[in-house]
Design a binder for these strands. Sequence first.
RNA 1: GGAAGGGUGGCCGAGUGGCUAAAGGCAGCAGACUGUAAAUCUGCCGGACUCAGUCCUACGUAGGUUCGAAUCCUACCCCUUCCA
Length: 420
Amino acid sequence: MTTPLPSSVKSDFLRVMLERGYYHQATDVEALDKALGAGGLVAYNGYDATADSLHVGHLLPTMMQRWLQKCGGKPILLMGGGTTKIGDPSGRDETRQLLTNEAIDANIAKIKTAFDRLFDFGPNGALLVNNADWLDRLEYIPFLRDVGRHFTINRMLTFDSVRLRLDREQPLTFLEFNYMILQAYDFVELNRRYGCVLQTGGSDQWGNIVNGVDLGRRIANKDLFGLTCPLLTTASGAKMGKTAAGAVWLNSDRLSDWDFWQYWRNTEDADVGRFLKLFTELPLDEIARLEALQGAEINEAKKILATEITKLVRGPEAAEAAAETARRTFEQGALAEGLPTVEVAGAELADGVTVFSLLARAGLVASNAEARRQIKQGAVKLNDQPVSDEFAKVTAADLVSDGAAKLSLGKKKHALVRAS
RNA sequence: GGAAGGGUGGCCGAGUGGCUAAAGGCAGCAGACUGUAAAUCUGCCGGACUCAGUCCUACGUAGGUUCGAAUCCUACCCCUUCCA
């Protein structure tokens, strides 16, 4: 599959996909381009409901849908309430843990909150649908006869999601084997219900998407399209969106605005341009200017990157607050609101509270033992003064600035200690 | 149903009676160098406790042998391969 030159595509949407680096693979690009040219194209992207929040790995396909809406299309966000009960075998050696219906519904409700900020759900706007609406009610024999007959086992065995499992001699249950059929069926059903003709997703979904396109042609004689974005790794090869604490979640109850902003602020130099194109909506000439900054100057670009993404995902107030906290903390060495805070009872403070226990309570380290190790290694500071005594205590006298003390682990992790 | 092999810390993977909280690698955290970057070098990397120590938890699960078990025995569960 050759990637067309940006100049050769006519539609705004595809041009953006190509120029900004979202485009990885597509089925029949010319026909898709033409279909987009007619305007009002309906496209969907599917989401697992295995967790109660999306993370940055979901952001890329979601941004594609956002651009689609900006370019006059209609996004459908498909929650996999039904398919989550099956488990997508793509890219894993082990069967996913199965969730209860209640857990899935609760997850979907939480995930929705992230979409509210990213999409216009007004009349004729984006739609959020749940494939449990049709999958739960499927009748086995009719489904097999209508849909199952279009799938040959021979072909199913050639798909990566299946083949890799088998090649690696890992078990694949019949339950999971059905996943690709159901996802293909989703596409046809969305076409029938909403006239949806395009499915987007990460490149790991290519096989599933192609199946849907094929099924649409066979079962309904419809021309459907697929478009995938690359799976992102950082320039040094790490998977995107993993931190020590786990995934980089989009919901703020899973990851604070401050930590979210910091994640992007610490982007590697080599990734700045790419990420600005993918995760912000700044104009390309502005991005070119930021990307060209050399040496320490590129830090300016990283701050803009962090603030822009945080604006999109967490809202403008959260973005500005995080940027301001960072400015005061890192550039003025001052104590700033917005850092994680531990509250200590006055009585406790009178006796003094050990620094190591506060590090643990603030969530800067996982255990007291780790906190003590870090102190021994000279990584801990209280109000910017190195702490050398493993059993050093914080007392009321240390709450110097505005009733708070600043506790730091390394150069990047800071927390405030306050009396409650 | 039969035979063989296997299940070890977040992951990979050594270990076949004490020297094992368990080699090595990856991932992670910190220090140095820098720019809140990368690369590199160094240290740390189950938990509790004012800690050169003591105790608790951990080698699929449950028992047993032994002064002592990840290591030996028994039963069970799960996985893989081959045979039927």
